[in-house]
Design a protein around this nucleic acid. Structure first.
Lengths: 186, 186
DNA sequence: ACAGGCATGTAAATAGTTACATGATTCG
DNA sequence: CGAATCATGTAACTATTTACATGCCTGT
C-alpha cells in the first residue's frame, strides 16, 4: 500500500471530528485550512473513494430529502493512520509568492513601480487578515483550540507581512527621495 | 499566443541580468528564488525552448571545451514581456505547510505530541534562517538591492515564524502544567 | 419560476517533481 | 583513475485546478 497524500490526511482529520460529506469537507477546507492547505472537488471525491476502499473511512447514505448524499466517518484503522501521520515530522514547506518574485526582479522597473508591487502585496495580506478576523468568532464558538491557535498564527503572520511591505516601501521611497533620485540597482 | 507561466518569467528575469545556460538558471534559482518560487530541470529546459520559439530569448552555442552548452539572452520582446508582467498585480499567493496542518489536527494527539510538531516546525525555520544568513554576503557582494531586500524579508520571516512556534509551545505547556493537566480540546 | 445553495462527480488541462540517460571536464 | 560537477534533456508520474454536467431542494 502506497503512502497517502497530505490531502488524504486533511480528509481523515476532518471526518475524524465528525462525519462529513464530500461537499461539507470542501466547505470546511475553504473555511479553515485553505490558507495553508487547499483542496478541490477534483481531489476530494476521488480521494474519499480511495480511502473507503482502503478501509480508512466508511461512507453511508444520508440523503437530505430526495437529494442523495454520502457521509463518511473515520474507522479505527483510519484513526491509527492519521495519528501515525501526525507523529511523523512535517515534510512539505512550500511557498509560491508571485509578489516576492516580482520584487526580486524589480530592478527592471522604475523605483515608483517597485512600490506598486509592495502595495499590492500589502493589500492582499490585509484582505486575508480581514478574512481571518471574520473567521475567528466562528472558531472560538467551536472551542477548537488548535485550529484557533493556527488561526491566530495566520492573523499575526498577515500583520507581520503587511507591516514588512510598508517598511520596505518606506525604505525605497527614502532611498529615492533622500539621496538625489538614486534608484535601486540590479 | 497564450500567457506565460510564472516560471517562464523567472527565466526571463534571470537571463535579463546576464546570459545564462539552463544549468546556470537552475543553480541560480536554487540559490535565490527557491524559497518562494522553485523550478526544476523538467520545467526549465522545455520552457527555454518555448521562449526561444516565441522570440523572447535567443540561445547561442557557448561550449566549455568539448562540452556543449547553450547560453540564452533576453530579446527586446522578452524584456517588454517581462516588464509588462512585473507591472501586473501579483496573483499567486500559495502556501502549503504540512506543519500547520498537523497542528490544526493536533487534538487527536496528547499535548506533549503537539509540542513535537511545533519543535519540528521551529527547527525547520531556524535551518532556513541559517541558510539565508549564509547567502546574505553573496547577495551583498553583487550589490543586488531588490534581491537583498527579499532575502532580508526571508530572514525576518523565518525569525518571526520560529519565535511564534516557541510562543505557542510555551502556551501549550503552560495550559497543560498550570491548570491541572487540562489539555487542548478538539 | 428562478436563483442560489446543496450535492456528486469527471475530463481535460496545467504544473511540477523525480528519476534517469548521456556524456564531457576538472580536481585530487 | 574515480568522484564531483558541468551540462542537456526527457519520460513517467503525481498533484492540482478548472470547468463542466447533472439534478434536487429552499426561499423569494
Amino acid at each position: 500500500m502506497e503512502s497517502l497524500s497530505s490531502t488524504a490526511y486533511v480528509i481523515l482529520g476532518l471526518v475524524r471530528e465528525q462525519p462529513r460529506s464530500g461537499y461539507e469537507i470542501k466547505a470546511t477546507v475553504d473555511g479553515t485550512t485553505r490558507f495553508f492547505w487547499a483542496a478541490s472537488y477534483g481531489q476530494i471525491y476521488p480521494e474519499l473513494k480511495r480511502l473507503a476502499e482502503q478501509g480508512l473511512v466508511v461512507g453511508s447514505d444520508a440523503p437530505t430529502g430526495g437529494r442523495r448524499r454520502t457521509v463518511y466517518e473515520i474507522t479505527a484503522d483510519g484513526e491509527e493512520e492519521l495519528k501515525a501521520w501526525l507523529r511523523r515530522p512535517p515534510e512539505t514547506y512550500e511557498m509560491r509568492e508571485e509578489g516576492l518574485l516580482k520584487l526580486f526582479f524589480a530592478a527592471a522597473l522604475e523605483p515608483g513601480e517597485a512600490v506598486e508591487i509592495l502595495r499590492a502585496m500589502r493589500a492582499h495580506r490585509l484582505a486575508t487578515n480581514a478574512q481571518l478576523r471574520a473567521m475567528k468568532p466562528i472558531a472560538e464558538e467551536k472551542d477548537a483550540s488548535y485550529p484557533l491557535l493556527v488561526l491566530e498564527g495566520g492573523l499575526e503572520f498577515t500583520e507581520w507581512f503587511a507591516d514588512w511591505c510598508e517598511r520596505v516601501e518606506q525604505r525605497i521611497l527614502a532611498a529615492r527621495g533622500g539621496s538625489g533620485g538614486r534608484g535601486a540597482k540590479a
